[in-house]
């Protein structure tokens, strides 16, 4: 029976490291132009924090797309919804969030993140059953129905919370900056980075170490075969959709605190950003989404400093460059 592996060379484990190094490369290229070390550190850390927030919002979208080929144009509405839910927690509990106690501050922040995730997950369930499920596999209708859902959701948010910007102050102990050498590092950015990294680590753990995670990865590649092995991919999918919506809400809270205000239009703006990120990363790839988020955010920050006029279109230029290099994104998912 040894004939089977006779002549079969040991397949080399190819780990594609190059795309993962691109953020480093970008930082190295940008550094001499920025000149001052402290500015560079500030910009880089700001970029990382922003990248982690974008990743939190975008990672669910890429998995939802990978698993069921569903591109949810309503994803942005969950970002806004999460932010509004946070105002419902943080504003009435302003006593806690403005108290001079790190414990109380963090407790109320965690409560807001939790509430936003739960509400968005629950609304995600309804959204999936009512809007997405009836049009599985029909791309055109799917795009249109989820756009319709996004419009309705945004308008409902306006109707419920009013059309004005709602200010959302940061918890007291997350305001201000540390001074590291000459560089000022905003405390909140550190906090956002920690949350984003935790989300990434959690996802990686689930995807690589649990059976559910294996099922998701297998389903992204070939959902029919997953069913032929005896699993209900539609149940798996609704779970992923809810988790993705919850993460969008979580990201929405982070972003709203970063901007210190909430408005229903933020979802539509961030939707474009999340699309760019998941295209750059490779549709369906969480790791690609992570690298893509960091890249987009770093370049936005560097460009904002070096060529402010270009900053807002820098991510489009980045997308074009990445796609010229790798037409299916940094980490194309096999099987699609």
């Amino acid at each position: 029976m040894s004939v089977i592996d006779a002549g079969a060379a040991l397949p080399r484990q190819r780990i594609d490291i190059l795309p993962a190094l691109t953020p480093l490369l970008v930082a190295l290229v940008a550094a001499p132009f920025i000149g001052s070390a402290s500015t560079f550190v500030t910009l880089t850390l700001a970029g990382l924090a922003m990248g982690m927030m974008i990743f939190t919002m975008a990672s669910g979208l890429t998995l939802v797309f990978g698993l069921m080929d569903v591109l949810n144009f309503g994803h942005g509405a969950f970002i806004s919804l999460g932010a509004y839910v946070a105002t419902l927690v943080l504003l009435p509990l302003a006593g806690w969030s403005q108290a001079d106690s790190l414990g109380a501050n963090l407790a109320v922040l965690l409560l807001a993140l939790l509430a936003a995730s739960l509400v968005c997950g629950a609304v995600g369930f309804v959204f999936e059953r009512v809007l997405v499920k009836p049009v599985y596999g029909q791309h055109l209708k799917q795009i249109m129905v989820t756009i319709g859902g996004a419009i309705v959701a945004e308008q409902l948010l306006y109707a419920l919370f009013g059309p004005e910007f709602i200010p959302l102050p940061l918890p007291a102990s997350l305001r201000g900056s540390f001074i590291l050498g000459n560089a000022a590092i905003e405390k909140y950015r550190i906090a956002a980075t920690i949350v984003g990294l935790a989300v990434f680590a959690g996802q990686m753990l689930i995807l690589n170490r649990t059976k559910i995670g294996l099922l998701i990865r297998a389903g992204v590649e070939n959902r029919e075969m997953v069913e032929a092995l005896g699993y209900r991919i539609d149940r798996l999918f609704i779970g992923v959709f809810m988790a993705g919506s919850a993460l969008a809400g979580l990201g929405g809270v982070l972003w709203a605190l970063y901007r210190e205000q909430v408005h229903a239009s933020m979802g539509a703006e961030l939707l474009v950003l999340t699309f760019i990120v998941i295209i750059i990363g490779g549709l369906g790839s969480v790791g690609g989404c992570f690298i893509g988020s960091i890249l987009v955010a770093l370049i936005a920050n560097y460009a904002g400093f070096l060529v402010p006029k270009l900053a807002l279109v820098s991510n489009i230029l980045l997308m074009v460059v990445v796609l010229l290099w790798r037409p299916r994104g940094l980490y194309p998912v096999s099987g699609r």
């Binding site: 249109m144 129905v145 319709g148 996004a150 419009i151 309705v152 308008q155 306006y158």
Partner: peptide, 14 residues
């Protein structure tokens, strides 16, 4: 909120 009703109409039409 005109867009709200438009969005609903749109979904129903699809």
């Amino acid at each position: 909120r005109w867009l709200l009703w438009l969005g609903l109409m749109f979904i129903l039409a699809v």
